[in-house]
């Protein structure tokens, strides 16, 4: 049985949406995948399985994982403090969280490079205490942690605010301490939101380029991230090599997106709007 939809315009608007998505998203990404046309598995492996490319991919994934884990803890902590307490300056602190998201990548890059560089305000102090940040993997992790921090806080903030107060009060009335309540009651309820936050942070940090290249040192095999290797291959006009590494990164991004959508569908408390 077909019934006419009272809201008209479906063919026109659905068609427009599909055409725009096809032109903006599908066309370029399809071109990227098609650029591998003529690439045999052997040449693909020759581009991706070199020690340099493997090191870059390992570094990128490792740093992104590290930064996302740090962000989940730090972000949850900050979100929890902001949700639990009312204090003067709370709105200002809350506003600060948006800054890494607002800052353009190249701006973040040069600011962090100077601040954490050997002569910078933080860098000099850290160097004196044996911590080398600039030109090391630690520098990459610092930049990625900075960039992804708001994703975590903003993702967990809303479900945290919506947690029924009755839960924690009930727990407290049953004699549970603050930490017990947090670990046993709050955290499990936040699970899906934290998982989404982690995946969002990971998706963002895996592809990050602008803010990292200024602080990373970019030493092949040691501090050269995969997106930078793509740019290098491109400047050598090794399109096939660039495309091969890009397709690997694209596949990882796609998996992340599927994961995020999967988590979000299961989430009852959270909806992420960044």
């Amino acid at each position: 049985m077909r019934r006419r939809d009272p809201i008209g315009g479906r063919p026109l608007l659905l068609g427009t949406t599909l055409v725009l998505v096809a032109a903006v998203v599908i066309l370029p990404l399809a071109s990227l995948v098609l650029a591998l046309h003529g690439t045999t598995p052997a040449t693909f492996a020759g581009a991706v399985l070199t020690p340099r490319a493997l090191a870059a991919l390992r570094l990128t994934v490792g740093s992104a994982l590290g930064a996302s884990i740090v962000d989940v803890f730090a972000g949850l902590y900050v979100a929890w403090v902001l949700a639990r307490y009312r204090f003067p300056g709370r709105a200002a602190l809350d506003a600060l969280i948006d800054i890494p998201f607002a800052l353009p990548p190249s701006v973040t890059g040069i600011a962090l490079a100077v601040l954490y560089g050997a002569h910078g305000a933080f860098g000099a102090w850290l160097e004196a205490h044996g911590w080398h940040v600039a030109n090391t993997q630690l520098g990459i992790v610092v930049a990625l942690t900075f960039v992804a921090f708001p994703f975590v806080v903003r993702t967990v903030q809303e479900p945290l605010a919506q947690l029924p107060a009755a839960f924690s009060e009930a727990a407290a009335s049953l004699g549970a301490g603050e930490w017990t309540t947090f670990w046993r009651v709050t955290l499990p309820l936040l699970g899906p939101a934290l998982l989404t936050a982690f995946t969002l942070a990971l998706a963002r940090t895996l592809g990050e380029y602008g803010s990292v290249i200024f602080i990373a040192g970019n030493i092949p095999g040691r501090t050269e991230i995969a997106p930078l290797l793509i740019v290098t291959r491109l400047e050598e006009y090794d399109y096939a090599g660039a495309a091969a590494i890009a397709v690997v990164l694209l596949a990882v991004s796609f998996a992340m997106l599927l994961a995020i959508n999967g988590f979000q569908r299961r989430m009852t408390l959270a909806r992420t709007t960044l």
Partner: peptide, 14 residues
């Protein structure tokens, strides 16, 4: 990828 990049690496990044 170029000479100025090397200069930045040597001078700014130390």
């Amino acid at each position: 990828s170029g000479a100025r990049g090397s200069t930045t690496t040597f001078v700014e990044r130390g």
